[in-house]
Simulated assay, not measured.
Amino acid sequence: MHSKIIGLDIGGANTKLASSDGTLVELHYLPLWKNTRLPEVLKEIAQRLRPERVAVVMTGELADCFEDKEQGIRFIKETVDSAFGSERVSYINSQGRFQNEAENLRELAAANWAASARLIGEEVGDCIFVDIGSTTSDIIPIRSGEHRAGLTDFERLLRSELVYAGTLRTNLAALLEKVKLEKGMCRTSSELFATTADAYLILGKIDEDAYTCETADGAGRSKTDAMRRIARLVCADLSEVGEREIYEIAEQVKDKQISVLTEAILEVAERNGLKKIASAGLGEFMIKEAAERLGFECVSVSGRWGEEISKVFPAYAAARLLDAEKPGN
């Protein structure tokens, strides 16, 4: 029997689920901007698991199918409440606290990192919590058990606490303006020809099972498919650039993404006087390398809670926080 308390992290592309005891982890690719199946999938989860209580965090309100964040929050909230029953559902806000009905609805926007930061603050202490998922990288300073980050994505982008690059869905042209090839430096094409998932699949940092998003060309997820997509980044095909050069482009992607991450972590570290990192997410491999470049201590969420929990950490943190709440608190 699985735990009767589950956490849900509803993003624009993925909905993640974890039980408070860590025995259950699920990831569902449910893009909100496309005739989303979120209502049907949540109802199926509710019927299959029959949880007593559900903790919810969200980032999907930013999806461009919504006119503004408030419309997105209302859609997600109504969908969850309909599936599980509103009396069973609790929402976590950008302070990392459970929201009551009277509080500002917009405080629920992009709050998944706040749940993670609260649990990390309790379990690890003062540090910079860095979580790289499929789409973004959160860089959250934590002191005295409380996060010190901006309360909106906009504020966090301004403070380098959010870097809009992830392990799967980032357009390679957004990271690399030029790549180094045998024939010289080559400008890249700003079409959506290839994503970070292609680069990390080729480098062996993810496997095909972890490649959960759509491919840029709608084709397969084999290494050959990924190579073909990366060749298009320089308007070429596999007869013009060989396997070795494709591998070198993928290495340049990784190096650039880690450089951007390192720069942001250093800015947050210097502003907050912190030199310890707690790493989570599908992109933990990047965080560990960034920590090495900076000479910072790195506590791995995978090492502490397991690799599967690390990939859905905000959902797990939300479930754990709800489990720890006493009635009346």
Rank of each mutant, 00 (worst) to 15 (best):
residue 202 I to P: 02
residue 290 A to S: 15
residue 273 G to M: 05
residue 225 D to K: 07
residue 37 R to G: 03
residue 8 L to S: 07
residue 302 S to P: 07
residue 106 R to Y: 01
residue 164 Y to H: 09
residue 321 L to R: 05
residue 226 A to T: 13
residue 73 I to M: 01
residue 180 K to N: 15
residue 264 A to N: 11
residue 203 L to T: 11
residue 308 E to K: 15
residue 232 R to H: 09
residue 258 I to R: 13
residue 249 I to G: 07
residue 116 S to Y: 09
residue 59 T to Q: 03
residue 189 S to H: 14
residue 140 I to D: 03
residue 192 L to A: 03
residue 261 L to P: 11
residue 151 L to Y: 10
residue 329 N to L: 12
residue 142 I to F: 04
residue 79 T to R: 06
residue 282 L to W: 06
residue 96 G to E: 01
residue 127 C to A: 15
residue 328 G to W: 09
residue 288 K to I: 07
residue 234 V to P: 08
residue 58 M to P: 04
residue 27 L to S: 08
residue 63 A to P: 02
residue 264 A to Y: 07
residue 249 I to Y: 14
residue 228 R to Y: 09
residue 36 T to S: 14
residue 278 A to G: 01
residue 161 E to T: 11
residue 163 V to L: 10
residue 79 T to P: 04
residue 295 G to A: 12
residue 288 K to H: 14
residue 232 R to T: 05
residue 130 V to E: 09
residue 320 R to W: 08
residue 222 S to M: 12
residue 314 P to W: 06
residue 4 K to Q: 14
residue 215 T to N: 10
residue 29 Y to K: 00
residue 16 K to C: 00
residue 249 I to L: 10
residue 176 L to Q: 10
residue 109 A to T: 01
residue 135 T to K: 03
residue 147 H to S: 00
residue 150 G to Q: 02
residue 269 A to R: 10
residue 151 L to E: 09
residue 220 G to D: 12
residue 170 T to R: 06
residue 319 A to Y: 09
residue 228 R to C: 08
residue 262 T to K: 14
residue 279 S to L: 08
residue 158 L to V: 07
residue 174 A to N: 15
residue 49 L to F: 15
residue 209 D to W: 09
residue 159 R to I: 05
residue 305 W to V: 03
residue 73 I to Y: 01
residue 170 T to G: 03
residue 211 Y to Q: 03
residue 220 G to I: 13
residue 128 I to C: 04
residue 229 R to Y: 04
residue 79 T to Y: 06
residue 93 N to H: 05
residue 102 A to E: 01
residue 307 E to P: 04
residue 95 Q to E: 01
residue 308 E to H: 09
residue 253 V to R: 12
residue 242 G to E: 14
residue 53 R to P: 00
residue 97 R to W: 00
residue 282 L to C: 05
residue 239 S to R: 15
residue 310 S to I: 08
residue 6 I to G: 05
residue 160 S to R: 10
residue 210 A to N: 04
residue 211 Y to C: 02
residue 326 K to E: 14
residue 142 I to P: 04
residue 91 Y to Q: 01
residue 292 E to L: 12
residue 297 E to D: 15
residue 310 S to V: 06
residue 237 D to L: 13
residue 37 R to M: 09
residue 60 G to M: 06
residue 194 A to G: 12
residue 213 C to A: 08
residue 226 A to D: 14
residue 233 L to S: 07
residue 326 K to R: 14
residue 303 G to D: 06
residue 144 S to F: 08
residue 23 T to P: 00
residue 118 R to F: 02
residue 203 L to Y: 13
residue 32 L to N: 10
residue 53 R to V: 00
residue 290 A to C: 11
residue 119 L to P: 10
residue 44 E to F: 09
residue 66 F to H: 05
residue 177 E to G: 10
residue 218 G to E: 09
residue 186 C to Y: 06
residue 251 E to Q: 12
residue 223 K to H: 07
residue 314 P to D: 02
residue 176 L to I: 14
residue 303 G to Y: 08
residue 215 T to I: 07
